[in-house]
């Protein structure tokens, strides 16, 4: 048994919001495939109808939960924005430059220290958020524009194009996010627990991934907990 330090990184509300969005996103992708891939709908039209209904219900959850979460914690939302819309440091640029070589050779490529949100995270998460907003807005128009009001065929075509385009974008970024976030990539082992666990990161991992942030947090001590492991 040894005493180890952990840094609190994600609140329960953040983890619940993230978890809801993750499962919504997965279901939306699966149910959306029944329209995106014609043979699926042709093979099982009854299932496709069911998927369409659930696509709307889960889509509503996907849109509303982050909005409610932001309204419930305006301070946290402001801090969240501050982490993403921040001036890039030389280390941020170096991180981006080394990212692909690092992904293909983590044993020999060493990454620079990072703040609470890595520059690569800012780009990737930014694309996920942008994609989520684009999917949400276009999905709403596709849904309500063919039920509550009559959107013009041109509007529907544009919205469907956006929906399809960002579906493709999201497939790429969600896959990469899953690969890193779930810790399949060996240097990222354990990161799964940040969102699907206690929300705390061990000191050693924090120093490796977010050096600037980890040292700052440890010096402040407010979010540091010690635990026997």
């Amino acid at each position: 048994m040894a005493t180890k330090r952990f840094i609190k990184r994600h609140s329960l509300q953040t983890r619940l919001t993230h978890g809801t969005v993750v499962f919504s996103c997965i279901w939306l992708m699966i149910s959306g495939l029944f329209i995106f891939v014609p043979p699926l709908a042709a093979a099982a039209p009854g299932v496709a109808q069911f998927m369409r209904v659930t696509h709307r219900i889960v889509g509503t959850i996907f849109i509303l939960v982050p909005i409610i979460s932001a309204i419930a914690a305006p301070g946290g939302f402001k801090a969240f924005l501050g982490k993403y819309f921040t001036k890039w440091t030389p280390e941020d640029f170096e991180f981006m430059k080394k990212f692909v070589p690092y992904m293909l050779g983590p044993k020999r490529v060493h990454m620079p220290d990072q703040d609470e949100v890595k520059s690569g995270q800012r780009v990737a998460d930014g694309m996920l958020i942008l994609g989520g907003i684009a999917m949400g807005v276009s999905g709403l128009v596709l849904w309500l524009g063919t039920s509550v009001f009559a959107a013009s065929p041109g509007t529907i075509a544009v919205m469907r194009f956006i929906h399809d385009l960002f579906f493709m974008v999201l497939v790429v970024f969600v896959a990469a996010h899953f690969y890193l976030g779930s810790g399949i990539f060996q240097p990222y082992r354990g990161t799964r627990k940040l969102m699907f666990g206690s929300g705390e990161v061990p000191e050693s991992d924090a120093l490796y991934h977010w050096g600037f942030w980890a040292r700052e947090e440890i010096e402040k001590g407010e979010n540091v907990v010690e635990r026997e492991v």
């Binding site: 293909l104 050779g105 044993k107 990469a176 990539f185 000191e203 050693s204």
Partner: peptide, 18 residues
Amino acid sequence: LGISFLTGLGYHRDEMRY
């Protein structure tokens, strides 16, 4: 991602503290 995974196999880093 498959290539990335393979190149990362066996990765190890020493535990650090500050």
